[in-house]
Design a protein around this nucleic acid. Sequence first.
DNA 1: CGGCAGTTTGATGTTACTCAATTTAAGTGG
DNA 2: CCACTTAAATTGAGTAACATCAAACTGCCG
Lengths: 244, 244
Amino acid sequence: MANHSDKNPASVCVTCLHRETGFCRTLFGAPSEDTKTAGEPGWQHFFGARAGSQIAARNHASEDVFVLCAGWAFRYFQLADGRRQILKFLLPGDLFSSTTIFEKAFHFSVKALTAVQVSGFSRSEIRARCAVDPDVQGAIAKSCVIDTHDATELQTSLGQCSAEERIAHLLLHLMPRIAARNVIREQRYPFPLRQQHIADAVGLTPVHVSRVLGLFRERRLLELSEGYLKVINAAELEGIGSLR
Amino acid sequence: MANHSDKNPASVCVTCLHRETGFCRTLFGAPSEDTKTAGEPGWQHFFGARAGSQIAARNHASEDVFVLCAGWAFRYFQLADGRRQILKFLLPGDLFSSTTIFEKAFHFSVKALTAVQVSGFSRSEIRARCAVDPDVQGAIAKSCVIDTHDATELQTSLGQCSAEERIAHLLLHLMPRIAARNVIREQRYPFPLRQQHIADAVGLTPVHVSRVLGLFRERRLLELSEGYLKVINAAELEGIGSLR
DNA sequence: CGGCAGTTTGATGTTACTCAATTTAAGTGG
DNA sequence: CCACTTAAATTGAGTAACATCAAACTGCCG
């Protein structure tokens, strides 16, 4: 696993706690001054990782279930010759994958896109809670449903859509997820992806991604630079990428 | 929903019952003369559907969870302009989707590829059993894990692989699944897909699928006709389509 | 100032798509 | 069993979308 040296026992998953979208909230209950300063319970631990570092690898196993608490990461599948498919961009509150609740071994890898904080929970503890707490059950079920639905959309996008449609769809998929975790003003979204990441997510080359984004910019649909995505014409973007 | 007129109360999901792969086995226990002749319990019912008929539609909801008991079907996602992505080919024992256990509404559609028999189970009954029976829990978890893993592979195949690789991968994915449900002699697999289905599953046009299959045939990797797939050189096929 | 990572641009190549015609296979009714 | 019909598969020619290769450009940081 990744380097645990940035471990910060003082903060208990604060980022996740105050997010409706997060998994931690269900496990901890709503945030309180108590939990924020309580330190780690025995069945939970934290670690940080630098941007670009690998924080989970395919075929490795863990007794823990991991949740991203701060920063961006991505889950991906790598082929022997170096090609990789980015399966999902992980935002604070996201499980690495909902299947990790049921299985020790990963079928995927995870890398940090920015500096991140990750929280690990004992799988057996989560499953014990699941057995008695319908809220936890519901959170797990919801997570599975969302992952599957996202997978369906990605498959459709990759299999059926043009370069423009795929990129527009990716942005449209990310926008509400980013908005759920940040205050958005003037349609300006924090957006740390490099074009290489977009390329690996939508199955194109970075060069072609650059051309398509250039087109979008020319048509005044959006601007993308300096770690921000500014959406100028959301309606037209949806017309291109909405999969309806 | 589909036409229930072919309903056949005499047979209790026999096809699923004697399959290790099936969901019904977990719910019923191993087959016995008893269950085979008992008729339907109140929380389960059957129906048949003709080849080509739609048996589930996106945005429709049902109190039931459906399992394919006989024949082939496929789950797919359709776009407004007619394009469709086939997400999974369903074989006897397969749930339409594992998410149907958690959610009433479908995010996908299902069509029969051959004549089929479908079994519907009351969702509330399954969830009640899940709460008390670890085997049922395990079966559901396994089903989620497999669906997610398959989704990962399909995403990678669609996003990163060439036409040859995608088609080879599809065949390699199906072979063991077919073999688990049929006696295979001489590497000859029952295979009812039309080239159009392959095309919709791997994101190519039927014309191009025909060319690639023609190449495979020329290279003596396989033959594909008359509803059967005959694999001649499995090793080379794996070299092309194995995603390693 | 130089170096580096990321992006943009241009020229060219390849893969897969489109359109259209032809062949094969599968029924169907006489 | 044989014309006839229809769906599916194959083949060829031309084209569009995206990849590849290479060079130039940008912003950033030491």
